[in-house]
Design a binder for these strands. Sequence first.
RNA 1: CGGGGUGUAGCUCAGCCUGGUAGAGCGCUACUUUCGGGAGGUAGAAGUCGGAGGUUCGAAUCCUCUCACCCCGACCA
Length: 563
Amino acid sequence: MRLSRFHLPTLKEVPADAEIVSHQLMLRAGMIRKLAAGIYTWLPLGLRVLRKVEAIVREEMDRAGALEVLASLVVPAELWQESGRYAKYGPELLRLKDRHQRDFVLSPTCEEVITDLVRRDIRSYRQLPINLYQIQWKFRDEIRPRFGVMRGRDFLMKDAYSFHLTEADLEREYRNMRETYQRIFTRLGLDFRVVKADSGAIGGDRTEEFHVLAQSGEDQLAVSDASDYAANLEVAETRPPGPRPVAKSTLRKVETPTQKTCEAVAALLGVPLATTVKLIVVKGRDGGLVALALRGDHTLNAVKAAKHPKVAAPLALADDAEIRAAFGCEAGFLGPVGDKVPVIADHAAAALADFVCGANEAGFHVTGANWGRDAAEPERADLRNAVDGDPSPDGQGRLKLVRGIEVGHIFQNGPLYTKALGVTVLDEAGKELTPTAGCYGIGVSRIVGAVIEQCHDAAGIVWPEAIAPWRVAICVINPKNDARVSAAAEELYAEFARRGIEACLDDRGLRPGAMFADIELIGIPHRVVVSERGLAAGTFEYRGRRDTESVALDRERLFARFA
RNA sequence: CGGGGUGUAGCUCAGCCUGGUAGAGCGCUACUUUCGGGAGGUAGAAGUCGGAGGUUCGAAUCCUCUCACCCCGACCA
């Protein structure tokens, strides 16, 4: 590509509304432009990269035996009503009507569409297993789109759906996809982790996420420092600590007129935060209230709590009136003493003796409280978020909390959708069978942002070779002074083409400083400078994007670098 | 949805408090001198001041409404 004929609107200044580095660099490099909140137009440079990511994903999916299809972004609401997700999905699902007032949705995922496709065309066990995928734009009406293409409202996703006769075959394909994803992210040059995850809105049992490690990631991950254990904080298990010490203190009421948090009470009394217990009152599955007890220095894990059989899902906090009715005081002075409502204690809270908690009386807490004496022995569960330094659940090493960007997610959702949509096939015996299914997503457009988060420096983007817009940039210095310079550059450009190496020729006639700055900003891995000076010496000037110095190479040695 | 903030040239922003001829830097166009790390000079194009209504002799500026965009907030007891 000749840059003189390419649309490359680079910016020197950072657009005001871009917060994170990938968003800033994508705007500055002229890869994307914003159209509306969370909606972007991909410019030629950005699209080149996006297409490369897409191509790698497609290649590996094909290699894994999946079959590509393409479904519309616009889906009849009926299908979503049939699966039950029309009612379940929140306002993130964009609903719209056509001119005949028929209801449609903009697809955020395609379980229904593909399952419907299978229901229509797959009749026999002989047609299974099958894995259908597409690479298609999706739409999610995010509450708060941000971070450019990392959390946009429309996004390019690879989504695959597999259908099987048996759970064992689903497990086989799940592993196949897991390996495929590892190949894809490795080819993309990313530092990633496979983590245990919650299945969330899609539903299902076995599920893992693929995360690119980056400070700007929106998800917290707990990873072991001594094994390959890694889990999304939402599901990272915590282990019960050792046995509870014996009670030594007696229960004593203390005045805490304005201290409504464990932090404030601990500070007032001069005791460690980890000796306090807080209650979080939530709605129970049976309609009553349930109190969740946590150590003061821990935070509630809503995903874990909502999975507890006595807790209403989704998690719903009790309101002020309910708390007042049950405890006789406002939130801020609650405690398990007196057993106002059934208590489920996190393992760490349950292991405390002589703890501090609310007195269930405005303005008072108690010290020296003990389970089984001042409060009923509570039911125990894992309810808290893991913290840095917790022992790893697999018994090896300690957990460290890091941040990640979710770029892939694989699920075994079983017969969830096939049953809802009434998919059946005939088995060998002529008997009707409901297939079991899996689904597998990759955020293609998000990957572009995630790569930049991992691969950039002060000058701009540093593309991994696999997805760089071009592998090499040929920079021409002062071509007007000497016709031989541009002739040599043209010849070099033609030679790269002959060798099948993607090159761009910077023939824009910019001054060298501006030209180099642009080429570095857009992250081209290799740069070759053609100048009078070099021609006289019979060399070209080569510099890798991460190098700090250039080297003079003759033609042969230059091309050897691209072998 | 709640709280906060911002809308003025393609980009980054000043001007608004205290109403009175629309501004700067970068970018863009032309010419010119330059020519190896975002050059200098000269000349120039470019804004319904987000929109509507109101107050006023007069509104970018004050008031009301509205739209768009950004940030913060969903774990507390």
